[in-house]
Write a protein that binds this DNA or RNA. Structure first.
Lengths: 189, 189
DNA sequence: ACTACTACTAGTATCAGGTATTAAATTATA
DNA sequence: TATAATTTAATACCTGATACTAGTAGTAGT
């Protein structure tokens, strides 16, 4: 006799398996649970889990929509104002995936990322890289809050190879983050 | 006679059409260009454009990998070693979506994120938040490089409310990033 | 005019990964 | 033991293709 699980538990594990690896076929699942392929299909029906191709299609559509809507990773947050070599403002709303699940407090590096990418964007040069930074997280930012970062170019070195940019981030009128960035400006022909 | 385009132009437009809407079937394309379905398939072959299902699969995989690697991870990078309140090591491979598209140089905030999240993870407390940091990007990291961050807890304040963590990130044996983090430890019951 | 070549079309067999349906066998439970 | 729940089997069919063979139309070279 082949070892088998009761229906309820099998269906639970099936849901989990597909959740963990959405690219699994019914055939693989059948072998996984030592049942016939029809049972797997009945299970999927009852749990209303779509077939592999449908799952892939949904994921593809999702990512396609994302690609359309977000020029992801270019600048973290939406740039509202930008005066090259002078100043810039960006807005960043703290979403679910930016926070610690327990405390709902935003992870520091997201706040940093907003400030850093704005500091880089404000520099009027093809290639600009962060050289160093001195930062302070003044108060924690929580889920749902809108973080407004304001960047000011404080100085540009004589050879125009370095710039100092100060970034102040606020929620409402409360300062939450403060940073001083040194940005390398790399001139390329 | 039905209006038809020369092969070259048709293939150009075909590439564009699929680029704009990857969810289009050969059948729809056939009607679009007033040619037989075989012609469409020959065109796809010549242009090495995969079939609809393959395209969807690729997109699905892409989005799945992104979801896995980006927001869901508690720590950016893979933790290889962790001795609470002492030290930790994490490894982070620079992928396509971490770099500036032109230069293939990693955006600073990803390098920072690895270091910051490791600095937080190494602290033996339920809730730990970055208070401030002093960082330096020693040399730029490029696409494909594996960044190894090493975190060392340098001191813990008397009330155990603050810790100083130094993080050094290397590619091979070259130092690429250096940071000193002050982490708040928040004790909760 | 004959040949060679390109571009296109047609048709068939086959595939993966399913759906949909009907029916039978097995197992559990009242 | 009767009956209900569960599982399996079998078959027809679907989509969106691949792989392969074969044929046609038009055009250029000789």
């Amino acid at each position: 006799m082949i070892e088998r699980l009761p229906k309820k538990i099998r269906q639970q594990q099936l849901t989990e398996s597909i959740g963990q690896n959405p690219f699994i076929t019914d055939d693989e699942l059948m072998r996984m649970f030592n049942v016939s392929i029809q049972t797997i299909r009945l299970d999927r029906m009852e749990l209303s889990i779509p077939e592999l191709r449908e799952r892939m299609k949904l994921m593809a559509e999702q990512s396609y929509d994302q690609v359309r809507s977000l020029p992801l990773h270019e600048v973290i947050g939406d740039v509202i104002d930008l005066q090259l070599d002078k100043s810039g403002i960006s807005l960043f709303e703290i979403a679910d995936h930016h926070v610690f699940s327990r405390t709902k407090i935003a992870r520091g590096h997201h706040i940093f990322a907003q400030a850093n990418s704005l500091a880089v964007a404000v520099i009027n040069e093809e290639v600009a890289l962060t050289a160093s930074a001195d930062i302070r997280f003044v108060r924690s930012v929580v889920l749902g809050e809108k973080c407004i970062a304001k960047a000011y170019v404080r100085s540009i070195s004589k050879g125009r190879t370095k710039a100092k940019v100060e970034v102040l981030s606020y929620v409402g009128d409360e300062l939450v983050f403060q940073g001083e960035f040194v940005i390398f400006r790399i001139h390329k022909e």
